[in-house]
Design a binder for these strands. Structure first.
Length: 445
RNA sequence: GCCCCCAUCGUCUAGCGGCCCAGGAUGCCAGGUUCUCAGCCUGGAGACAGGGGUUCAAAUCCCCUUGGGGGUACCA
C-alpha cells in the first residue's frame, strides 16, 4: 500500500450520524491510521432543503465521542460553490456537458454520458462492469447553483487528493458516473472499496422504526464508545482469528480491506449489550465511577451528597452485573430514593406468605442493634438468626430482598444492606412487615 | 421493468479445492458455583439457500433458479 494514503468520510448533514455512517467513518479511520495516512472530514451539504446546522453538529459530536479524530476539515461543500461552477462550465466549454431546461423551466448543467463499458476494480468486490449506455445524462449543477452529489464528490475527492474511497455499497451504481467525470476532467481515478451496508435487526434497511439507530442514542443509553467501536468494527470485518474483544490499537494494527467482507450485516443489540458488558467489566472502578456519576446526574439523581467512597463501593458491587449505565441506574435506583417501588409479583410471591411478617420482625430485631452496620456484621447476625430459627438462609433472603429493594433480584443482600445503610434498611423492613406482609385475611394457601 | 451487489448456525463471523460429516462469538437449552439474578465454569442443540456443472476431490471455481439489498432524482 502506498505510503500517502488519504481517505475521507463525507456525510450529508440531513440527520444524526447513524450507525451505518459511523461504521463507514470507522473503516476509513482505521484504514488511514493503519496506513499512517490522512483522514479528512467533509460535510456534503449540497441539499439546501434537508441540510441543517444541528445535524452537522450532531455528526461532529458523534465522531468525537467515538474517538474518530480527523486530520483535515471539516470542509463544507456549500462553501465551495464557485469551484463547482467553474468545473462545470469547463465541461460545457469542452462540449462534455450542456445547459438543459426542464419542464418547470429550471436551467441546469447536465453531463453528457458517453456510451461504452466501464470497469471498476473494487478493492473488495473485484471487477464490476457497467454498460454506460444505460445511464442517462445527469445533472451536475442544479438550478440553485449547487452541485449534485456525484459531481461535488468527484471534484472534491480529486482536489483533495483522496486516494481511496471507502463507502457503503449503496454507492456502487454511482461509481460509473463518477468515473466518467474523472475521465472527462483527466483526473486520476482513486481506488474504490465498497463496504456492505448495515441492516436493521429484521434484515431490512436501517430506519427509525428499528429503535436506536444513531450513535447519540447509544451514548445516551450509557454505552461505552469503545464497545460500540469494537462492535461496529466486527460488522463486515474480522481480524482473522477468534478474538472478538480488541483494543483500538489492535484494531488499527490488524485492519486491512482484504479482511473486510461483502455481505451486509444485521445489527444485533443483544450482542452489543454483551460486548458493552465485557468492556464495563474490563474497565477499572476508578474510571467507571466518574462516568457513573455523570450519567446518574444527567438522569436526575442528586449525586452531590453521595460520597466518593460509597460510589466506588456501589460500582464495585455491580461491576459484573450491568451492561450499560442505563441498566446500572435501573438496577440501583432503590438506593437513591426514600420511597421505593415494589414489584407486585415479587411482593405476592415472597411477602404475602404465612409467617413472613414474623420472619422480617426477627430480621429487624437481629439487625437493628448492629452498631457497625457492615457486611460482615450483618451476615454474622443473620446467620445466627437462621441457626436460631433452624431455617436455611434462602428462607430469609428473598423476603428481605423484596422488602429492602422492592424486587426479587438484586446484588448480594449483605452488601446491599451495608450500602443502603442501617436507617433505610430498617425503615424498609419495618414498612414491609407492617404494610406488605400477609395478614390473616391476605395469606395465600 | 432495466442495471448492479450479496448469499456459511437465529445473529456476527472463520473458511479463500483436500486440514471441514464446517471452527469461534452471541443468543438459546442443561448442569455446576450460590441468598435471588447477573457473572463465571462445563456440556448441548444449531448453518454451507436449491439445482446443474468443472475436478480424483467443492462451503470454497462456473452457470441457472430463488431469496435479500442497492440504484435508476435539479437526494446524498
Amino acid at each position: 500500500m502506498s505510503s500517502h494514503v488519504k481517505v475521507r468520510f463525507a456525510p450529508s448533514p440531513t440527520g444524526y450520524l447513524h450507525i451505518g455512517g459511523a461504521r463507514t467513518a470507522l473503516f476509513n479511520w482505521l484504514f488511514a491510521r493503519h496506513n499512517k495516512g490522512v483522514f479528512l472530514l467533509r460535510i456534503e451539504d449540497t441539499d439546501q432543503q434537508r441540510s441543517t446546522e444541528e445535524a452537522t453538529q450532531a455528526i461532529l459530536d458523534s465522531m468525537k465521542w467515538l474517538g474518530l479524530d480527523w486530520d483535515e476539515g471539516p470542509y463544507f461543500q456549500s462553501q465551495r460553490l464557485p469551484a463547482y461552477k467553474q468545473y462545470a462550465e469547463k465541461l460545457v466549454a469542452e462540449g462534455k456537458a450542456f445547459y438543459d431546461t426542464d419542464a418547470e423551466g429550471r436551467k441546469a448543467i447536465r453531463f453528457k454520458m458517453l456510451d461504452g463499458m466501464t470497469e471498476i476494480n473494487d478493492l473488495i468486490h473485484g471487477i464490476i462492469t457497467f454498460d454506460t449506455s444505460l445511464i442517462e445524462d445527469f445533472v451536475i449543477l442544479k438550478a440553485d447553483g449547487f452541485p449534485t452529489y456525484n459531481f461535488a464528490c468527484v471534484v472534491d475527492d480529486a482536489e483533495m487528493g483522496i486516494t481511496h474511497i471507502i463507502r457503503g455499497d449503496d454507492h456502487i451504481s454511482n461509481t460509473p458516473k463518477q468515473i466518467a467525470l474523472y475521465k472527462a476532467f483527466g483526473f486520476k481515478t482513486p481506488e474504490f472499496a465498497h463496504i456492505p451496508m448495515i441492516l436493521g435487526e429484521d434484515g431490512s434497511r436501517l430506519s427509525k422504526r428499528h429503535g436506536a439507530t444513531s450513535v447519540t442514542e447509544y451514548r445516551d443509553k450509557g454505552y461505552l464508545p469503545h464497545a460500540l467501536v469494537n462492535f461496529l468494527a466486527l460488522l463486515g470485518w474480522s481480524p482473522g482469528n477468534d478474538v472478538e474483544i480488541l483494543s483500538i490499537p489492535e484494531m488499527i494494527e490488524k485492519f486491512t480491506l482484504k479482511r473486510a467482507n461483502k455481505t451486509s450485516a444485521q445489527f444485533n443489540n443483544t450482542k452489543l449489550d454483551w460486548m458493552n458488558g465485557q468492556y464495563i467489566k474490563n474497565t477499572p472502578v476508578e474510571r467507571l465511577a466518574p462516568e457513573t456519576k455523570r450519567f446518574f446526574e444527567k438522569a436526575g439523581i442528586d449525586m452531590a451528597k453521595i460520597a466518593e467512597g460509597w460510589l466506588f463501593d456501589l460500582v464495585e458491587l455491580y461491576h459484573d452485573r450491568f451492561k450499560t449505565f442505563q441498566d446500572f441506574l435501573n438496577q440501583t435506583r432503590f438506593f437513591f430514593t426514600d420511597t421505593i417501588e415494589y414489584d407486585q409479583a415479587a411482593v405476592t410471591k415472597f411477602l404475602k406468605r404465612e409467617g413472613v411478617g414474623e420472619l422480617l420482625r426477627e430480621v429487624y430485631a437481629a439487625v437493628s442493634p448492629i452498631d457497625n452496620f457492615d457486611k460482615k456484621n450483618i451476615e454474622d447476625s443473620l446467620r445466627n438468626l437462621t441457626e436460631k430459627l433452624g431455617v436455611g438462609f434462602s428462607k430469609l433472603a428473598q423476603p428481605m430482598r423484596v422488602a429492602i429493594t422492592g424486587k426479587s433480584v438484586s446484588a448480594g443482600i449483605f452488601e446491599t444492606m451495608e450500602l443502603l445503610g442501617k436507617e433505610k434498611t430498617t425503615k424498609r423492613l419495618d414498612y414491609a412487615m407492617k404494610n406488605l406482609c400477609a395478614t390473616s385475611e391476605t395469606i395465600q394457601f
